[in-house]
């Protein structure tokens, strides 16, 4: 599964550094397992589209739901968007 591109999200409270990352296919359990290794992880399995969130303290939060083709990425205010490339490289790396 590849992360293709990001779009900035404008909303009220998550801050100014919020992005949606668009994937080339829908999120599956393998993808969630890979994401889970990045940091502090929660997973809500028993709901229509299981939800996950991973927090890498002071760096970023990623969240999403199985079956969707986007993830949401929240960076701390003032953080460089360069971190998005790190996330993209991690997701797009085969390992």
């Amino acid at each position: 599964m590849k992360l293709m591109y990001f779009e900035i999200v404008e909303n009220c409270l998550e801050g100014l550094n919020v992005y949606d990352g668009y994937l080339d296919e829908n999120i599956n359990e393998d993808f969630v397992e890979k994401i889970s290794r990045m940091g502090k992880f929660i997973f809500m399995k028993d709901i229509p589209k299981p939800y996950f969130r991973v927090i890498v303290r002071s760096k970023f939060t990623i969240k999403g739901s199985i079956g969707n083709d986007t993830i949401r990425i929240i960076l701390p205010d003032g953080a460089s968007p360069d971190i998005l490339n790190e996330i993209k490289n991690y997701i797009n790396n085969e390992n």
Partner: peptide, 24 residues
Amino acid sequence: ITPEELSYILKSSFDIEVRAGLHC
């Protein structure tokens, strides 16, 4: 649960649209 996270879960996992935050 922050309102933002709750609204995100409602939308992404249940397909329910609500609003979270300060409401302008």
